[in-house]
Design a protein around this nucleic acid. Structure first.
Ligand SMILES: [Mn+2]
Ligand SMILES: [Mn+2]
Ligand SMILES: [Zn+2]
Ligand SMILES: [Zn+2]
Lengths: 141, 141
DNA sequence: CTCTAGTTGCAACTTGTTCGCAATTAAAAC
DNA sequence: GTTTTAATTGCGAACAAGTTGCAACTAGAG
């Protein structure tokens, strides 16, 4: 669940007809190797460590472009800033540890199925959904 | 699921030690009688129709105060603006009709239970959660 | 009625994100 | 390799949603 789906983001960009420039290459590498769900500032920080001079507007624009082409997923957890991850091979949802900010991925077949069921019973067809569970480490006693 | 829990928002405010001023009274009435999940601009619009001159900053501040006291619930759907509803008597989640913007409430005992279960199995204890299902009317064939 | 802490209107500010524009450049076409 | 052109970039300004400082006002306790 961590790590990208099929090919590298760079390859997928090429296939989508996106140009691979210097800044973009670095951004893609940073994004690809991220184990977490970084926001734009954090991406920019990581990019700048590798290649200073890349403007944060470029990071924003690149994220928008990648999202348009379905190469990344955009999230908006409760802190109110966009966070990103390479488009995952399979759907998953998220735990957010409210104490550490850490994000943990999970997927429940049953929950997914129940969503379909309840949507159908309301006369709806699901376009997408978002399940975020804010948690803290369980204090054992 | 539509309509408030126990007492009126005004009463609950009084009990929380919040002062009932002119602007606040109108805001509370608007909020209480809302059938949807209005954002601040919309609340302000509705308030202004009843009593012009109320500043939008007051609406923002009132929402923050009410949320602090647990009298309303704050949501953030995909359009990126805060939306509000009076604190519901019982928990529920939301369908958002992507075509009309309409919000429909639902609750699934089973989904709630499965969340607990899966959180526990990851060593977490749930603080809160958010399940938003973006839907469109099911095209029957 | 008095007094004071809570509330308000207003304008200025903050934060996260987008945009216009001129300069640069990837990569398609020769 | 050279040319050509549309995509991309850096930069600063602009935006949008939400917050805040402040002086004036007022609910409601005593
Ligand atoms: Mn993820
Ligand atoms: Mn609701
Ligand atoms: Zn899911
Ligand atoms: Zn729920």
């Amino acid at each position: 669940m961590t790590g990208t789906s099929e090919a590298s983001l760079i390859d997928r960009c090429r296939r989508s007809g996106l140009r691979i420039t210097g800044p973009r290459r670095v951004i893609l590498e940073v994004l690809q190797s991220a184990e977490d769900h970084p926001d734009v500032e954090e991406l920019h920080r990581r990019v700048s460590r590798i290649e200073p001079g890349v403007n944060i507007a470029t990071v924003y624009r690149t994220m928008n472009k990648l999202a348009e082409h379905g190469l990344i997923e955009r999230h908006m957890f409760d802190d109110g800033r966009q966070r990103f991850e390479p488009a995952p091979a399979a759907h998953h949802d998220h735990f957010i540890n409210v104490e550490s900010g850490e994000v943990v991925e999970f997927c429940s077949e049953e929950i997914e199925r129940l969503q379909e069921e309840i949507a159908k019973s309301h006369g709806f067809e699901i376009v997408s959904h978002k399940l975020e569970i804010y948690v803290r480490p369980r204090r054992s006693r």
